[in-house]
Lab assay of single mutants.
Amino acid sequence: TQVHVDGVTYTFSNPEEAKKFADEMAKRKGGTWEIKDGHIHVE
């Protein structure tokens, strides 16, 4: 599962880990995350 944050791609083999990471990054940025085309995007 790929997580895209500010133009950087992080790859996780476990989708649950990817979601936890996205959640943390979104909180830090004061933003949100969503799943697009099977990838997670942090806004």
Rank of each mutant, 00 (worst) to 15 (best):
W33E: 03
V8T: 10
H41F: 15
G7N: 09
G30D: 06
P15G: 08
T9F: 11
D37P: 01
Q2G: 04
I35E: 12
R28S: 14
K20V: 11
K29I: 15
M25S: 06
A18V: 01
G38D: 05
T32Y: 15
A22S: 03
G30H: 06
H41Y: 15
A18S: 02
A18F: 01
V3F: 02
V8S: 08
K29N: 14
W33K: 03
R28I: 15
T9N: 05
N14R: 07
D23H: 08
G7L: 05
T1K: 04
S13T: 11
G31E: 03
K36F: 08
M25D: 02
M25T: 09
E17G: 05
T9P: 04
A18I: 01
V42Q: 02
Q2A: 08
A26E: 02
F21W: 07
G7A: 05
V5W: 04
A26H: 02
K20L: 12
A22L: 02
K29L: 15
D23M: 12
K29S: 14
F12V: 00
E17C: 14
F21H: 01
V5E: 02
D6K: 05
S13D: 11
A22I: 01
R28E: 14
V8A: 11
K19M: 15
K20C: 15
T1R: 05
K20I: 12
P15S: 11
T9G: 03
F12G: 00
T32V: 09
K19T: 11
H39W: 05
T11N: 09
A26L: 06
A22M: 02
Y10V: 05
E43V: 15
T11V: 12
H4N: 05
K20E: 12
T9I: 15
K20P: 01
F21Q: 01
K27D: 11
A18P: 00
T32N: 09
E43W: 15
K19H: 09
W33N: 03
E34Q: 12
V5F: 08
T11W: 14
K19P: 00
V42H: 03
F21M: 02
D37I: 02
E16A: 09
R28M: 15
E17A: 11
V42I: 12
A18L: 01
T1F: 11
Y10F: 10
V42P: 02
D23G: 07
K27E: 13
N14C: 14
E17R: 07
H39E: 11
G30N: 09
K20F: 09
F21Y: 06
I40N: 01
A18G: 05
E24T: 08
D6Y: 07
K36W: 07
N14L: 09
N14A: 08
T9M: 12
D37E: 08
H4G: 01
F12M: 01
E17S: 10
H4W: 12
D23N: 10
G7Q: 06
E16T: 10
V8G: 06
E16Y: 10
S13E: 11
K27N: 12
H41N: 07
I35C: 15
T1Y: 11
W33I: 11
T1W: 13
G31V: 06
V42C: 04
A18R: 00
Y10N: 01
H39L: 09
V8H: 11
T9H: 07
H41V: 13
H39T: 10
W33A: 05
Y10L: 04
V3A: 01
V3T: 01
A26V: 14
I40F: 12
D6A: 07
H41P: 02
S13F: 10
V3Y: 01
N14I: 08
W33R: 02
R28V: 14
V5L: 08
A22E: 01
E43T: 15
Y10D: 00
G38M: 04
N14E: 09
G38Q: 04
F21N: 00
D6T: 04
I40G: 01
D23A: 12
K29P: 06
P15K: 09
K19C: 14
E16D: 12
D6N: 07
K19N: 05
D23S: 11
P15I: 15
G31D: 04
G38K: 03
D6I: 03
T32L: 07
K20D: 10
K29W: 15
V8R: 12
Y10H: 06
K19R: 13
E43N: 14
D23K: 10
T32F: 14
G38W: 02
I40V: 04
P15Y: 15
I35A: 05
G31F: 06
T11H: 11
E24F: 12
Y10I: 05
I35P: 03
E43S: 14
K20Q: 12
I40C: 04
K19W: 12
V3W: 01
G7C: 15
I40R: 00
Y10Q: 01
V42G: 02
K27F: 13
R28Y: 14
G7D: 08
I35K: 04
E17P: 02
Q2L: 12
T1V: 12
M25C: 14
V3L: 02
K20H: 10
K29Y: 15
E34G: 07
E43M: 15
Q2T: 11
D37R: 01
E17D: 13
V5S: 07
I35N: 05
E24Y: 13
F12E: 00
D37C: 14
F12D: 00
G7W: 05
P15A: 11
G38T: 04
Y10S: 02
H4Y: 12
I35W: 15
K27Y: 13
E17K: 08
M25F: 06
K19E: 12
T32I: 10
E17Q: 10
E24N: 06
S13I: 10
D23L: 08
H39S: 09
T11R: 09
R28D: 13
H4C: 13
G31W: 07
Y10M: 04
G38V: 03
V8K: 12
K27S: 10
K19D: 03
Q2C: 13
G30Y: 03
G7P: 01
H4E: 05
T32E: 06
Y10A: 01
H39V: 15
T9A: 09
E43F: 15
F21T: 01
V42L: 07
V3E: 00
I35S: 06
K36M: 09
F21G: 00
T32H: 13
